[in-house]
Design a protein around this nucleic acid. Structure first.
Length: 438
DNA sequence: TCTGGGGTCCTAGTGCCC
DNA sequence: TCTGGGGCACTAGGACCC
């Protein structure tokens, strides 16, 4: 999907179509999750600190992500993919590999192209959004093709042309080459894919280590036989929070760790999992990050057990100077717990989880009441109907009243405690058409 | 300028067992 | 009894991805 979160917001909010839209954390330490192509013109891109984005594009619309809504739309798209093949490997909410041969949907380049064309039309009909399709003989090449196809296109890499196509591309094109590896290669005089191939496998292994070296050399030769894997087992579950202001108070750090442990366990249980290894993550005031972990005798999903382990791990960490981020994770997952066996026999569950903490908290500089009206969320007003929060502050909230299929709407301002105003669920982007649903 | 959140995978060091 | 090495589990950190 193209600029997925931002595209959803533009489809949802007619007044934002054709405008710079930036979705991400709106707090003082937020970063850009996705931005519209109109915002990219100003130099804004994913992972950029929000403060920098605001300087580059001060007039853009800044919105908090609505993951629940994006997930709903993602499921619609994944449904279309699964109709093509049982082998669908989601990479994220907005990207997936599909093995067209396994589904019998395509067997040569022409049939593949037709499938791609129809898929793009179906995505548009069902979601109202544009998606790009990359067609190729391997996952690596399909990914590169889809990047080239963006926005709103289709690219097919003809068999036999792969090496000529890859050769002149920068090393960063290859999946797995990030800033660090890119720098490493550059210092060795390697800047293009062709130069990786010329360097030879031994040199690559010497530079980057065994696994990375072999893998990268193979990719440079356009060799990639990784299968499309439909069912990926979760390996770990974690939660973390970055705080608007560094926490110095050791007691408060301890309380936050307990809160995170509870949230992590709630996730774990929600997925029907338990785990043996508890991981504590601490990012200090200077951005240095350290992790401490402890492996238990058996898997658990007991909040008290995870809380206690996390507290023990915290004891071994020096937090003087302050912490900006805390996280708690569980790995070594199993789909049962030893406690479960006893608890179920006794007809009871382990209790003690605080229930009041939102899973995806909205963090803003504003106070609690204004925090409720985060920029971008849907609302309903008793008199004016459906709209979305354009901004809030100083005891006021500004709402634009429009829906996905309306004209750009009017803006009105209310007191933040106006009883006629309440949060609302997002409206579907496309009016339901029975023949295209499900 | 100042760097989110949720993941995966790899490497390297250490300790233990055989 | 000492030494070496392979294999494994665990721990910590780093790179990368979306």
């Amino acid at each position: 999907m193209d600029a997925f979160f931002a595209s959803v917001e533009q489809a949802s909010k007619p007044s934002l179509r054709g405008k710079a839209v930036i979705v991400g954390g709106l707090g003082p330490r937020g970063v850009v999750a996705t931005c519209s192509y109109e915002a990219r013109v100003f130099g804004v891109h994913s992972a950029m600190p929000m403060a920098q984005a605001r300087r580059l594009a001060p007039n853009a619309a800044y919105l908090v992500p609505r993951f629940g809504f994006y997930r709903t739309i993602s499921e619609q798209v994944m449904g279309l993919l699964r109709a093509l093949s049982p082998l669908v490997e989601p990479l994220s909410l907005d990207e997936a590999f599909v093995d067209l041969e396994a589904g019998g949907a395509a067997w040569d380049r022409e049939s593949a192209r037709l499938v791609g064309v129809k898929l793009r039309a179906d995505i548009r009909a069902v979601t109202g959004l544009t998606g790009s399709v990359g067609l190729a003989a391997s996952k690596m090449l399909a990914k590169i093709a889809s990047e080239q196809a963006k926005p709103d296109g289709l690219v097919l890499i003809e068999p036999g042309t792969e090496r000529a196509l890859l050769g002149p591309m920068p090393v960063r094109t290859l999946p797995g080459v990030g800033p660090a590896t890119g720098d490493h290669l550059r210092r060795a005089g390697i800047t293009t894919v062709e130069e990786i191939a010329e360097a030879g496998e031994d040199e690559l292994v010497r530079l980057l280590g065994k696994a990375h070296g072999h893998a990268l050399y193979a990719m440079a030769l356009a060799h990639d036989d990784r299968p499309v894997v439909a069912e990926r087992e979760t390996k770990s579950v974690s939660v973390e929070d970055t705080y608007d202001v560094d926490i110095h108070d050791r007691l408060r750090v301890g309380l936050e760790v307990q809160r995170l442990a509870d949230r992590c366990v709630r996730r774990l249980r929600g997925a029907g999992l338990s785990g043996r290894t508890i991981v504590l993550k601490v990012r200090r005031y200077d951005f240095s990050t350290l992790t401490r972990s402890e492996t238990l005798r058996g898997p658990t999903d007991d909040p008290a057990v995870v809380r206690e382990a996390a507290a023990r791990l915290l004891e071994s960490v020096d937090t003087t100077g302050g912490v900006r981020l805390l996280g708690v994770g569980v790995s070594g997952l199993a789909d049962y717990t030893q406690e479960d066996l006893f608890a179920q026999a006794a007809g009871e569950r382990v209790e003690g989880l605080a229930e009041d903490v939102a899973d995806e908290p909205v963090r803003e500089e504003a106070g609690p009441a204004e925090r409720r009206w985060a920029a971008g969320i849907d609302v309903r007003h008793a008199e004016y109907g459906h709209g979305w929060v354009q901004g809030s502050g100083l005891g006021r909230v500004t709402v634009r009243f429009e829906t996905p299929d309306s004209e750009p709407g009017r803006v009105r301002t209310f007191r933040i405690d106006d009883p006629a105003l309440e949060p609302a669920d997002p409206l579907p982007l496309v009016a339901r058409r029975p023949e295209l649903q499900g």
